[in-house]
Amino acid sequence: MSLVNQFRSEPSRPVLVGPSALVRQAQQRKQRQQWLIYGSRLLLVVGVLLFWQFASGTILDSSFLSNPLAILRQTITWLSDGDPWYESTLIINTAVTLEETLLGLFFGVASGLLLGFLFGLQPTLERIFNPFIIALNSIPKIALAPLFILWLGIEIPMKVVLAAVTVFFLIFLNTLNGVRNVDQHLVDAVRLMGGRQRDVIFKVILPSATGSVLTGLHVAIPYALIGAIVAEQIGANHGIGYLIQSSGESFNAAGIFAALLVLTLIAGLLNAIVNLIDRKTSHWKAGLKLSSADQS
């Protein structure tokens, strides 16, 4: 009798139990819970809107708080004042803000990744620049706006730069962290396989840092929008931030709320993108978390 056959025991598989009565019950309970939560949310929104509408002009001062119908009217006006239709106030300004946000995101992410990897792979370089980077990062980015206006004017490039600077530090610091925290044992493993520096970078450092980079991206996406909006409020002729600012200056409360509504929609869209990225990568990110917990 060979040893192989005698002693090879297959690793035991996890046992999956089919949907039993208990499982179905748990599912039904969960479903009811879901409906309760969605229903309550809907009720809350409708309640607040109704109260707002009917209290406006009596308990609430409509010149400060406007009311839902006025906001709706303002939104429709801003959507229909264009000829052709896509040159309406709301669409033009939304497009400008989106353009600034996405360009800022692109340049910020690209430069953050590049410098993050460079400094991560060259620790001496990182040690030389470290105090300066910390000093620059601790400046609130909004404080830089007047400087950017001086250099670039109040057109789109100024907003892109402000958004990009905000994004840059988030991506840069996370990338640097990711590259520096690469498990040395994994690097050794690749060296033992006969891997060169190129293999170490592409097969260990890059994928290992990805988790950290995505965490940075997660935070950076909303910050790009914040950067663009704040820049628009400081000095601009276009954009949602400008729309909010100019409505405020002309005491148009309905306009402020209508612009905020659009801003919320843009933020929601960007958040959906973040969630999509998260879901795509959660599979092995769980593994990264586990393996780093192992070491401690």
């Binding site: 498990d183 044992h185 493993a189 690749v190 097969k203 260990v204 990805t210 092995w284 586990l290």
Partner: peptide
């Protein structure tokens, strides 16, 4: 020292890949 972002299969293939 298996790579956490690779499946078993891709981990075993790794030395051959290199």
């Amino acid at each position: 020292t298996l790579m956490p972002w690779r499946t078993v299969e891709r981990n075993v293939e790794m030395p051959l890949e290199i």
